[in-house]
Design a binder for these strands. Structure first.
Length: 285
DNA sequence: AGCCAGGCTTGGT
DNA sequence: ACCAAGCATGGC
């Protein structure tokens, strides 16, 4: 038959930090819980004794989609142990122990980060919500408001630029539509992306208009699970400068190289700790 | 009211 | 190779 709720035993999982940390844009705090859409289903999550309690709107038998999304079987202690032994890293981890990386859908992740260009996180959430409401499939909701899946590639490709601009996308509208069309037209090898090496997949993604290294790296890390990838954005750039090079002012290229070599096999996790730490705790600029 | 936001592209040196 | 402007829109 399946169940409407389930509790997953897990330690060291900061649900608040993880769902708010700018990697996914569909989660909303409702009371003590978080409501959102993952794996095409409406979900409510809350911290429970010894783990995470999940509720869905329709009974499910197989919960592996959620375990995968939340990356519940990642041994965080093992990840943290690979971080460089320096003060900035120690402080970032100490500030938010339990911050995790999610494993998201490729298309939703790509689309979300195409929209992220010069937007604040709250505004990205707003654009994603509007797009889903207008062009996503309605799904069963267990909350007070109706729920919608993220729009399929075909749905976005079928929109006019005006319809997308009406979702407050601005100059990002043609980029999103173009990416959807290019994927459907086979301009990039979309299906094979998950099996490519990091460098191959990055090059492939960057063929899309509006996708540079930053956005490609976010997709590789948050959807592809390439945990060694370290996306460099304005926040990380400022954080690295202040924390690791307080005297000098290294070029962007030099910083890029430092990021690629300093943080080890789980650099993506390190990046997320530094990013969230910088946003919440650091006075930058 | 003005500044700036998980960037990218293009056109100037 | 490096640098800056321009791009739409909204929150603060």
């Amino acid at each position: 038959m399946g169940e409407l709720s389930k509790t997953f035993p897990v330690r060291e999982y900061d649900l608040d930090a993880t769902l708010q940390s700018g990697q996914a844009f569909r989660w909303q705090a409702v009371g003590q819980a978080w409501e959102g859409v993952a794996g095409g289903r409406w979900v409510r999550l809350r911290l429970a004794k010894g783990g995470i309690a999940a509720e869905v709107a329709k009974p499910v038998r197989d919960w592996s989609w959620l375990e995968e999304y939340l990356q519940l079987r990642v041994d965080l202690g093992q990840v943290l142990a690979t971080f460089p032994d320096d003060e900035p890293m120690e402080n970032a981890v100490a500030a938010l122990p339990g911050l995790r990386l999610l494993r998201q859908d490729y298309w939703e992740c790509l689309a979300s980060f195409i929209l992220s260009a010069t937007k604040q996180i709250v505004q990205i959430r707003q654009m994603v919500a509007l797009l889903s409401k207008r062009f996503g499939k309605p799904i069963e909701s267990g909350g007070s408001k109706p729920a919608f899946a993220f729009p399929e590639i075909e749905a976005v490709a079928g929109c006019s630029e005006t319809e997308l601009r009406d979702c407050k996308l601005g100059f990002r509208a043609p980029n999103l539509r173009g990416a959807a069309c290019d994927i459907l037209d086979g301009k990039i090898d979309w299906k094979r992306l998950p099996t490519m090496t990091t460098d191959e997949a990055r090059a492939e993604l960057m063929k899309l208009r509006g996708v540079g290294q930053k956005i490609a790296d976010c997709v590789l890390l948050f959807a592809g699970g390439h945990q060694e990838v370290f996306p460099v954005d304005v926040w990380i750039e400022r954080a690295l400068q202040q924390l690791y090079f307080p005297k000098r002012r290294p070029s962007a290229k030099r910083l890029r190289k430092f990021a690629d070599t300093h943080f080890g096999p789980y650099a993506g996790y390190a990046q997320q700790y530094l990013f969230h730490h910088a946003r919440v705790h650091l006075k930058l600029k």
